[in-house]
Design a protein around this nucleic acid. Structure first.
Lengths: 202, 202, 202, 202
DNA sequence: AATGAATGAGACTTCATTCAT
DNA sequence: AATGAATGAAGTCTCATTCAT
């Protein structure tokens, strides 16, 4: 078993991509190794030259794709000056990426949640990179005096991530009947200013 | 096929309760019909006198329990005057219920998500009752001029529900290491007023 | 799983007998569970109501059959007075049993040896009952002053068992071309008096 | 298919030796071709330049090693005068060789028996050379009037070989906890004179 | 109404062998 | 002569559901 061959060889990428497609099209529990192999145009056994087992395929899929996803968001945030703009960039890029890659959206929002405790734990590890991005924004916002000082970072993070996540999930479950990216601005506004009317004294 | 026999016989409730326990203790994929039967103290075959199939058990579990859950929240909201108080009542009751019934919290937040498209669709149907409660609050808030007029109802609902849901999920996954109910107030505050500092002009 | 149902129900015996036949006819490594199930006229899954796994079938086969085998030999020895007669009874019954049950002879002499360390260890445990019989004879022979006093029990046991075992194995591998039982007497004689001519001074 | 290339190239010997080690260390069923290739420091495919298939490796291993083994015994017997001494030389050399080469002992006594009918038949062929040695001794003993005249050669051979084989197998299975070579003399004595006490009239 | 023994479909993974380089 | 990446066949076991009692 080519332990180190894990990340190279063109087949590696083929298999990863095939896995995303197969999971999105058939659902997590109908994503048999043989289906993935067929779509990747390799023999069943070849999968096991690149991945330890089925779970390893899934973890790798998530790590590879989520890595790109997070990098992409980081890059988009990079040239923004204010925390408000950074948050908007994050939400917009998040939505844009998933809009442009429906297979991946299905996988992250629906299929990957059908996993058991162990696997979900590992996925959680990878997700941390994304949550760290949120924490960075929150910290910076508080430091700059833009965000509430007394705000609990964990709660704020859960509000932002929960809102984004729920929005994408709903969009996926509604079969993309509307444009996701255009929701970024109003969501951004709502997260920043809350439900209450401006004039309202708080 | 006693689809209408839904509530007839004491065994029905026994099976529902057993299902919740078994799923919470063993996880969705380890919740075999025979385990549920054993915990409910009935024979495997008896299950099929009350439920069409395994999926029907799960749907029924969700419908029965979620019905109680929503009623409970409605009741708590009933005697509140302002929308702000109603929202707080909703969040607090939501958290309180799940705090007091950890099995149910595990089932809703983790295990029931490990289902396939079809089942998740049906669960979504039942969840609507909860989302309607949120819509009621949002509508009322806008009508009373307390909430932003230009706010998109769907987005607001996703922010509230996403935040609550993410918060509970995190709490369950962290093995209830902290008190959930005490998060209700700060979350309520954050949802109403947003991330930005009060003095900030918006 | 009916853990305790292990030994009862008519299917249990059917499966054991089917396993012996299938192993004898197809060889140990070609004795698939599905073949055993088919020959036993039960569904594949039924096997697992009576046996934990495939290894458990094999162990059980050996335990059940070897139990009968040893009992049979014990019984035959029971009414013999001298150790010489007891030894002869053992050898004759040993050969007679295997002669009358060729399937079982193939299984013990050839197929059951194709097992890995773990399984062979368990088989060894069961074989002990047989070796104890030999030890009993040896002890008694020495006690009565019929056998050599200085003789090492372990070595004697290995000579007797090794000779019997090798004889049966050869007979099985030669496809029963000759009568096995009639070898009992000469073997018995040879074991008792050795290779050397009587007149020879020792 | 270099069946005749048997001894050509240094890799041939490397592979044979590697096979013995791998089988002894991992067991017959865990002795994958790739493991043998790795230990022999050749590529997997190279194996197939020297051997037709996996079975051919095993047969060759047995033929090569058993050839040396038999030669060694023959040599040790060569300068003995009496049949008794020849038999003792055979047993002692047999035990000595296996004592000094534990890997080979494991392979012959345990691992090589985990083979199917076909392979075992071929191994039997090779074993014949050893059995012929025994026959030579028996014939000579009878001719010289040292051994019983009425003794069946086949039975005598089975007694001698069965005893030796069982002794070595037991020693291997007991993890060499005692010295094997020192058993040669008592076994030799027992084979020659039998279980019965000298004075006993036969 | 209740039982529970019996059913049987379905998938992950290993490893001997090949063949293009 | 040598390589080693790729192949693909094959078998154990689980568990939702049925049906004779």
């Amino acid at each position: 078993m080519s332990r180190l061959g894990k990340s190279r060889g063109p087949k590696y990428g083929q298999i990863i991509d095939a896995a995303v497609e197969v999971i999105a099209e058939n659902g997590f529990h109908q994503a048999q190794v043989s289906k993935i192999a067929k779509k990747a145009k390799v023999a069943d056994g070849t999968i096991y030259l690149y991945f330890k087992n089925k779970e390893d395929i899934l973890i790798s899929v998530f790590r590879e794709k989520m890595g790109l996803f997070v990098s992409c968001i980081e890059e988009a945030m990079g040239d923004k000056e204010t925390v408000e703009d950074k948050l908007l960039a994050l939400i917009e890029t998040y939505f844009k990426n998933l809009s442009e890659n429906y297979h991946w959206a299905i996988v992250t929002q629906l299929e990957l949640r059908q996993t058991d405790k162990r696997l979900r734990g590992k996925i959680g590890e990878i997700l941390k990179d994304l949550l760290i991005l949120l924490d960075t924004i929150i910290d910076e916002g508080k430091l700059q005096g833009v965000f509430k000082q007394e705000m609990d970072k964990r709660i704020a993070r859960q509000m932002i991530f929960g809102t984004i996540d729920e929005t994408v999930t709903t969009w996926v479950m509604k079969d993309r009947k509307y444009d996701l990216v255009s929701l970024a601005a109003p969501i951004h506004h709502l997260l920043l200013s809350g439900l209450l009317k401006d004039s309202k004294t708080r």
